[in-house]
Design a protein around this nucleic acid. Structure first.
Length: 108
DNA sequence: TTAGTGACCGACT
DNA sequence: CAGTCGGCCACTA
């Protein structure tokens, strides 16, 4: 199978992100895995980067595997993401979110 | 077509 | 705990 509908992959990813409950977060890698695209964490990042302005996608609930926001600490977008998370009562330990305790079903 | 670039990840110092 | 490193793969110039 050499043909693949590119947009369907994106939609699966966006759908997965959209399903993240308020007050919870998920890593890029987990999003990819739950979307049936294991190993394509960077793809998730790429899609979020190219997300339209007024999108209803809760992009702020996506963080990296280190439990941190994937933006330069001093950037404006970093502050916005952190602000949105704090507004949902997501707890930060310094600059990190304690995944072990708050991350979305770590399954396993 | 090739080479460079990431809103990444896991294993390993 | 903090760095490095190699792998990953869609996208772009």
């Amino acid at each position: 199978m050499t043909q693949n509908h590119p947009s369907s992959e994106q939609q699966r990813i966006l759908q997965t992100i959209h399903a993240i409950p308020i007050g919870q977060v998920a890593t890029y890698g987990l999003i990819a895995k739950l979307s049936g695209l294991p190993g394509k964490a960077r793809y998730v990042g790429y899609i979020l980067k190219s997300l339209p302005e007024g999108s209803s996608i809760p992009w702020h609930r996506v963080i990296n595997a280190q439990g941190k926001i994937s933006f330069p600490e001093h950037s404006e977008v970093y502050r916005e993401q952190k602000q949105r998370l704090l507004a949902e009562d997501v707890i930060f330990k310094g600059h990190k979110i304690p995944l072990k305790q708050y991350l979305w079903k770590q399954s396993s």
